[in-house]
């Protein structure tokens, strides 16, 4: 498999196919994400981009293919699934904070349950990451008392506090009011600058230009086109990519 010297790719997907009943939603996808790489996935709704990244941490099953995270191949074995999920952080469109826990508890509880930290250690680490997303002063509030942008920043802090090797973002700004998009994107840019491996499903093409090493365009469950942002945005080859970019770049 991998030699001792070269670390395995962060994510390695080969021959991935998925069906909902008789409808095939992913067609034989091959995708490798190197460590430290920032990948942006875009495409029209229903193109399979969310489904693709949700298969990486086993929130969605799949019928054919192999998914490896940090060299570990996903199986049905619960222990393997949990191991993979502990290496992969995820941020959702709808934030999915736990409404019955305070902001601090949202970040600290998973650390205690999953990373086996003591209460004090968990609290300290949670506060550290809440400071990094600029909301330590909201730590004792409940999610419902925060704005959408603040909630999404907490969700990012909660995921990053687990110190994952890869971060997945599933349309993290799509449910936000326009004036809150920037504060969330700024946090994500900061994360990218620290060298976090990221796979981001988004329509924020400005973010893609600024941060991405590679942009992927998906349509109909297939990867239609990919390349570095400079060539992807200036000279898209596929006409479906061209049509899509024309719609979102205004």
């Amino acid at each position: 498999m991998t030699s001792v010297k070269t670390a395995p790719s962060a994510i390695e997907i080969s021959g991935l196919s998925k069906w909902y009943g008789t409808m095939q939603v992913l067609h034989d996808i091959d995708l490798t994400v190197a460590q430290g790489e920032r990948l942006v996935i875009c495409g029209p709704s229903g193109s399979g981009k969310s489904t693709l990244i949700r298969t990486i941490n086993a929130l969605e099953g799949f019928e054919q293919g192999v998914i490896k995270v940090a060299g570990i191949a996903l199986t049905r074995d619960q222990a393997v699934v949990e191991d993979v999920r502990r290496r992969v952080g995820m941020v959702f469109q709808q934030f999915n904070l736990f409404p019955h826990l305070t902001v601090l508890e949202n970040c600290a509880l998973p650390l205690r349950l999953v990373r086996s930290l003591s209460a004090a250690e968990a609290r300290d680490r949670a506060m550290h990451y809440l400071s990094k997303v600029h909301i330590p002063e909201q730590a004792l509030k409940y999610p419902a008392q925060l704005s959408g942008g603040q909630q999404q920043r907490v969700a990012i802090a909660r995921a990053v506090a687990m110190q994952p090797e890869v971060m997945l973002f599933d349309e993290p700004t799509s449910a936000l009011d326009p004036e809150m998009v920037k504060e969330v994107l700024d946090v994500m840019v900061g994360l990218a600058e620290e060298g976090m491996t990221m796979a981001v499903v988004t329509h924020e093409m400005g973010f893609a230009r600024q941060v991405a090493d590679r942009v992927i365009f998906m349509d109909g469950g297939r990867i239609v086109e990919q390349g570095p942002p400079t060539t992807f945005f200036t000279a898209p080859k596929n006409e479906r990519t061209q049509a899509f970019l024309q719609q979102v770049l205004h």
């Binding site: 929130l59 999920r85 502990r86 349950l113």
Partner: peptide
């Protein structure tokens, strides 16, 4: 459903 997904994605045991 998102609550289940968020908890699972964090690696929590069932």
């Amino acid at each position: 459903k998102g609550q289940w997904e968020a908890a699972r994605a964090l690696g929590m045991r069932p």
